[in-house]
Structure formats: C-alpha cells, structure tokens
Amino acid sequence: MKIVVCVKHVPDVQADRRFTDDGLVDRTQGDGTLNELDENAVEAALALAEAHGGEVVALTMGPADAEDAVRRALQMGADQAVHVQDDALAGSDVFATAAVLAAAVRRLGEDAPVDLVVTGMAALDGLMSVVPSLLAAELGTSQATLAAELAVEDGAVRVRRDLDDATEVVRAPLPAVVSVTDQSNQPRYPNFKGIMAARKKPVTTWSLADLGVDAGAVGAAGARTRVLQATPRPPRENRVLVTDDGGAGTQLAAYLVQNRLV
C-alpha cells in the first residue's frame, strides 16, 4: 500500500501564540512543532503500512521551517518526505492548501498509485478540521473522516467515528482520504535508531511550478476570506480568587444569584 500522510508545522500550543499585523499566524517565533494531532496520523499510517506492507510518504506544505514537521515524521518511521514550499503560498486559505496538497498527492501517484491519504483531525493553529474533506473533494476520492478506529480490509477503509449525537461506521473504498482523531492510537516516540535513520531519508522539495499549480490561485491573492483585524482578547476583569474557609460554596451560590447566573 502507498500511503501519504499530511503533516503540518504549527506554533507550539504551549507557547505564546500570536498573529501578525496582516492577520496571519505568526510563524516567525521559531517555536513551531509538528501539529500534535498529526502524530496520530503518522502513527496510523505507519501501523497500516506495517500490517499490510507498503510505503509511507510524509507531506507538508509550508515555509522553510515546515521541514521540521516532515523530519519528525521520518524519525517516527516514514520512508520519505515531500515539502511543498513557495513564497507565493504565504497567506493561503484552506482551499489553496487542499489544492496544493492534492497536486502533490497526484504527482506522488505518477509512479505507483496512492491508496490512502491520512491526515490529523485538525491543525492546532486554525482548528478548521476541513482540509481532509477538501482533499477528498479535490482528489475526487471517498472519505472516512474523524476515525477513532480504523482498519483496511477488502480494498476499503472502515472507520468508526464518534459525533456529537451518534456513532457511525463508514466504509470508503480505496483510494480514500481518512482523518484520525487523538483517540485512534498512541503515537510512537522516535527512538535513537529512528532519529539516526531519518538523517539519511530523502526530503524532496517541490515548488508550485513543479506541481503545475498557478501561483495566482493560492496565497493571500487567491484566498476567499481576508482577516481584517486580529486582536488579543483583553484579560477578564473583576476576577475573584478565594480560599475555602468552610463557606466558599455558599458564597459561590450568592455570587451566581447576584450575577443572575442561576
């Protein structure tokens, strides 16, 4: 099986995350990491390749730093990596992201067809959870998203997905796009051997021209939404911190009543 796993480089959730004056995610702080939820995607891809045989290609789109994300995937065990990088990509929206990732998947499928594209459930910077659906739409394949459990059998991927009000089982014939949740597995931690081996693994860099994607259709120029203003939320005012002396519950009830919250 040939599996492509999409991984994104995002600002560390534990760090002080900011937007630039242009309303873009500030990616210059140098504290970016592999999107935690994409570790689950890499783990799912590796486990499937181990069970069914085949190859795992890690794919990222982003500025120079984004190479760290595919490097981490290689350390975990991916066989090779592709980094789509082009100055014209700055400010891309989810549609451009999906179009570019799809172009890279098609290109990767030129020698041997790609059976499965695996993604995380959300990128922890934008938290849109829409790129997997858009990828399936771009590629014209089936999708089985938000997998809490997944298995490949009889030429299809079968997933269990837990939604707000229901649990579903979806069967998607290959080729397919799947996204996996943080419930789906426990990502492996790269060991010393994996880290050493990753140094020798190839990372291919493609530009938009390499992929035949029109630069005018991506980046800020091609975006269908534009951020007007990004403002840090003001700190909450009139905050109260009390230590329970035996009556804090009673006081809390009074506070709730006073503020018409009951």
């Binding site: 905050r239 009390v242 230590t243 329970d244 519950g249 009830a253 009074a254 009543v257 009951v262």
Partner: peptide, 24 residues
Amino acid sequence: IADYGIVGDLTTVLPQTAAEVRRL
C-alpha cells in the same frame, strides 16, 4: 482565566454550592 476561583476541595465546595442554590 477564572472570573471566580475557589481554592478548595471540590468534594465539599460542590455539594455546598448545590444545596445553597436550591435553598435560595
């Protein structure tokens, strides 16, 4: 980030709050 924080044991604070809310 709390507007109203209580440093205390939830096993005593929660039941007391619930009882007082019901009483009020």
